[in-house]
């Protein structure tokens, strides 16, 4: 699966880094707690979150997150968009809520990257 596939599956809009949507995605992590993302996110992971502040982009940078998906139509501000361009981490927005967005990706074979799935 690539970021482009994720966009199609989640009816999402790419808000930044539109030239970096061919990147491969191997796992996903859904959380509003950045502490949990820092403790549990795996490699080549997309991050689904309802949290919308610059620390989300910073956390994604530290964890080499492939792209950030803001659920239920949340829109990042200018500062976050600038930071994401600088970090080369695409920001996506989907109208789906967290549970549905995760479910759609899971249904298509994306997993959490742990032995429990």
């Amino acid at each position: 699966m690539t970021v482009n596939d994720v966009i199609k599956l989640l009816d999402a809009t790419a808000l930044t880094c539109t030239d970096k949507l061919d990147t491969e995605v191997l796992s996903a992590c859904g959380s509003d707690m950045m502490s949990d993302v820092l403790a549990f996110a795996k490699t080549k992971c997309v991050l689904l979150t309802g949290l919308c502040n610059p620390q989300v982009v910073r956390t994604a940078e530290m964890m080499d997150i492939v792209c950030i998906i803001f659920v239920r139509g949340k829109k990042p501000d200018e500062a976050m968009m600038e930071l994401s361009e600088e970090m080369e981490i695409p920001l996506l927005a989907t109208p789906h809520r967290m549970f549905s967005a995760c479910g759609i990706l899971y249904e298509q074979g994306l997993r959490g990257g742990t032995e429990h799935g």
Binding site: D32, M33, M34, S35, D36, A39, T49, L51, N53, Q55
Partner: peptide, 14 residues
């Protein structure tokens, strides 16, 4: 802001 889950120090140790 998404922090304060009590995972910081344990994660630093890990």
């Amino acid at each position: 802001l998404g922090f304060g889950a009590g995972m910081g120090l344990p994660n630093m140790k890990k």
